[in-house]
Design a protein around this nucleic acid. Structure first.
Lengths: 170, 170
DNA sequence: CTTGGAATGTCAACAAGGCTGACTTAAACT
DNA sequence: AGTTTAAGTCAGCCTTGTTGACATTCCAAG
C-alpha cells in the first residue's frame, strides 16, 4: 500500500505512473478483459456438454498436434485426473484421437479429428474476432505494449514449457 | 517473438499485423498471463477455505463500500446463489458486514470489517507486486498500450455498470 | 387502503471441473 | 531383474457455477 512512492528521482520520473490506483485499475482491467475474452467461446460451448476446460485442451492440441498427455498437463497446469476426464469425453465424442507412440509406446500422441478441427475453428473464430476488433481499435503500438506487459506478467515456467514444445516440433 | 510484422508500409497495409498467427499468440498470451496474474492470491487463499470467488467479492466490496448485493451481482456477472454462498461464508467469518438498507429495507449494503480489510490488503499486495513488476519491466508506453487493448476487449456492459457504481459514490 | 406485481435477497439441490491419494498396466531404462 | 516413467483409473473431496422455489419489502393501480 501507500504507493505515492518516491520513484520520481533522478530522471526516474517515468516510474511515477506506478501508483496504487494505477495498479488497481490494471488489475480490474485484467479481470474485465478476461471475461470478455472468454465470453464468446463459453457461449458456444455451453450449448454442447463442454466447458472451458475442453476449449483449452482443444486449443493446445491444435497448436501442437501430436503432443503427449504429459506435455499437455504441463502446459495447462492441471492434474492428470482433471485433464483425463476432459480428454476422455473428447475422445469418446470423436473430436480427439489418441495414437500410441512409435518410438515410445507408453506415450499417447494427441490429434484433432476432422470434427475436432471443426469445433476448434468455431471457437477460434469467435475468439479471434474479438481479439481482432480489440487490436484494430487499439492500433499497432498499443498491441505491442499489450504483448510486452502480458509477457512480463506470465507464469514463465509454464510458458517456457510450451515454447520448448512448439519449437521441438512436437 | 516474431514481431517483424509489416506495419511499416503505406496505405491500407497497416492492418497486416492482424494475421491469424498474431491473433492466436495474443490469445495464448492472455491465457498464460491470466494464470500468472491470479497465481499469488490463489496461493494465499488456498491456505484458508477460500477461493478466487471470495477474492473477487472482497476486492469489489473494498472498491465500492456500501454496494448492494445486486450491484455486486452485475459487476461479477454470476448468479445470486453463487455470490450468496461466498458472501455468507465471508459474513460468518467476520470479514464482511451486511447492513440493511435505510431507505429500502430489501437491500443489504456490504462493507469490509477490519479483518476483511486486512485480508484484502494481503491479497492486493501480492497481486500489485506482480503487476508492478510487469509494468516496470515493460515501461510506461507499453503499459498505456496494455490498458488500451484491454479496454477494447472488455465486456462493456459489465464494466460500465461498475463505472456508474463507483461514480455514484454508493 | 388494499392488493398484486416487481425487486431484493436467501436457501436447496445439482453439475462441472479443479484437487489429492492409491493403484494398475505397459514400456523403458539400468 | 528391478526401478522408473507414461498413462489411465477409481474414489472422494472442494469450490463455484447453475436453476428453481421462497420470504420479505416496496410501490403503484384500483
Amino acid at each position: 500500500m501507500a504507493d505515492g512512492r518516491g520513484t520520481a528521482t533522478a530522471g526516474g520520473e517515468n516510474l511515477l505512473f506506478l501508483t496504487d490506483e494505477q495498479l488497481r485499475q490494471g488489475i480490474e482491467a485484467m479481470f474485465f478483459a478476461y471475461r470478455g475474452f472468454t465470453a464468446d467461446p463459453d457461449r458456444i460451448l455451453s450449448d454442447m456438454a463442454y466447458g472451458r476446460a475442453h476449449h483449452r485442451a482443444i486449443h493446445f492440441i491444435n497448436r501442437a498436434p501430436g503432443t503427449t498427455v504429459n506435455n499437455l498437463l504441463n502446459i495447462l497446469g492441471v492434474t492428470k485426473q482433471s485433464l483425463n476426464r476432459v480428454l476422455r469425453t473428447l475422445i469418446e465424442d470423436g473430436l480427439v484421437e489418441s495414437r500410441v507412440g512409435k518410438s515410445d509406446k507408453r506415450e499417447r500422441h494427441l490429434h484433432l479429428t476432422e470434427d475436432g478441427r471443426a469445433l476448434e475453428g468455431r471457437l477460434s473464430d469467435a475468439q479471434r474476432a474479438r481479439m481482432r476488433a480489440a487490436f484494430r481499435d487499439a492500433g499497432p503500438e498499443a498491441v505491442a505494449g499489450f504483448r510486452t506487459v502480458l509477457e512480463a506478467m506470465m507464469d514463465t515456467e509454464m510458458h517456457r514449457t510450451y515454447q520448448r514444445l512448439k519449437e521441438s516440433g512436437a
